[in-house]
Simulated assay, not measured.
Amino acid sequence: MGETVTGAGDPAGPTEPAGPGTSTVRLATGVAAVVLAMLAGFALGRAVTAPTSIGTQYAADAADHTHPPGTAPHVHGGTDGGDQISGLSVSAGGYTLVPVRRQLPIGDQVDLRFQIIDADQRPVTAFDVVHDKPMHLIIARRDLTGYQHLHPTMAPNGTWSVPVRLAAAGIWRLYTDFTLRDSGGSPVALTLGVDLVVAGEYLPADLPDAADTAEVDDFTVRMRGVAQRGVVTPLLFEVSRAGQAPTLEPYLGAYGHLVALRDGDLGYLHVHPEAELVDGAVKFWLTAPSSGDYRLFMDFQVAGEVHTAEFTVTVD
């Protein structure tokens, strides 16, 4: 039998964003955690996840986080503490994600609206452009289905909006992946997350078995490499169609984008690849922060259309 998900007590229509809660973390703490994560060389945060030569390039990138096409591979995330996995907190680094509403109707397209506010409860209106966009928005249901990678637009008052349709009842996780500047002009990269509620009978899907191939539309995507806990490892994705290699096109300044969500708590990792294809494959560097199952979503573009291949990975 399915579980019935009821509403979250939101008003019938949109309301203005409220101020930050008491869990807001001071900005200095967030910046310090980012620096420590970069020095550590791994984690689901703003860590360098590549060999020394790539890490050197990324360190230079970190001085100014407005990336042109060809940026070295790296990880997006915030500093939620613990093992540096990101997206678990609605507030970090002195900034808070405030959705206008958290209850959405099932199956209807609506404008999803939110703000990022600072420690003084002021909406943030200045964001760095990172991989061609100032805001990357990821949505997935708690059973790791229904993945969407969207790019909202911002109004002058700092309110972001994007059309969204959530086709099934349940609890959905919303991630905002962005970079802004602190008072000293240094880049602060954060991933903030919040749950959205779609009322109705919730029938969770089982996590698919781990596999190294995925079918999407008329493409086959093969994954090579083994993710390991606490170890930087390469993952390569080869795209084919009818046995032939299609021409991959840059999408948001890269040949592919990889989002990993950890089963159980939906901890978030957004990874970008090496600037060039490696023997026709898109190559990422990944470090799993813990054992367990992860769901990987790899976006790629062919003939102007974006496709998403999905994989389950088990880390021992």
Score class of each variant (00 low, 15 high):
2 G>V: 12
4 T>M: 08
8 A>V: 05
9 G>L: 12
10 D>I: 11
11 P>M: 07
11 P>K: 06
11 P>N: 09
12 A>M: 08
16 E>V: 12
17 P>D: 05
18 A>L: 14
21 G>F: 02
22 T>V: 08
22 T>H: 13
22 T>N: 11
22 T>R: 14
26 R>S: 11
27 L>F: 06
28 A>D: 08
30 G>V: 11
32 A>S: 10
33 A>L: 13
38 M>I: 12
43 A>T: 13
46 R>H: 14
50 A>M: 08
50 A>E: 13
55 G>R: 02
57 Q>M: 14
65 H>I: 11
67 H>D: 05
68 P>W: 10
69 P>N: 01
69 P>E: 15
72 A>D: 06
76 H>Y: 12
81 G>R: 02
84 Q>V: 13
87 G>N: 11
87 G>Y: 04
91 S>M: 11
94 G>C: 01
94 G>P: 02
94 G>T: 04
95 Y>R: 14
96 T>Q: 05
104 L>W: 07
113 R>W: 05
116 I>W: 10
117 I>E: 03
118 D>F: 03
119 A>M: 10
121 Q>E: 15
128 D>G: 01
128 D>H: 06
130 V>C: 07
133 K>S: 09
133 K>E: 15
134 P>F: 06
134 P>D: 11
144 L>M: 07
146 G>S: 06
147 Y>T: 00
152 P>S: 05
155 A>K: 10
155 A>G: 05
161 S>F: 15
162 V>I: 09
168 A>I: 01
170 G>Y: 01
174 L>H: 03
177 D>F: 12
178 F>K: 12
178 F>A: 10
180 L>F: 07
180 L>M: 12
184 G>V: 04
186 S>N: 13
190 L>Y: 00
195 D>G: 02
198 V>H: 01
203 L>C: 04
206 D>P: 10
207 L>C: 00
221 V>A: 05
223 M>R: 15
227 A>K: 02
228 Q>T: 12
229 R>V: 08
239 V>E: 06
240 S>Y: 01
241 R>Q: 15
241 R>W: 03
242 A>D: 14
242 A>V: 01
243 G>K: 07
245 A>M: 07
245 A>Y: 00
250 P>T: 14
257 H>V: 00
258 L>M: 05
259 V>H: 03
266 L>K: 08
267 G>P: 10
268 Y>W: 03
270 H>L: 07
276 E>Q: 14
276 E>D: 14
277 L>V: 13
281 A>M: 10
281 A>V: 08
281 A>P: 04
282 V>S: 05
288 A>F: 05
288 A>Y: 05
294 Y>R: 00
297 F>T: 01
298 M>N: 03
299 D>P: 02
300 F>S: 05
303 A>Y: 12
311 F>G: 00
315 V>C: 07
316 D>S: 08
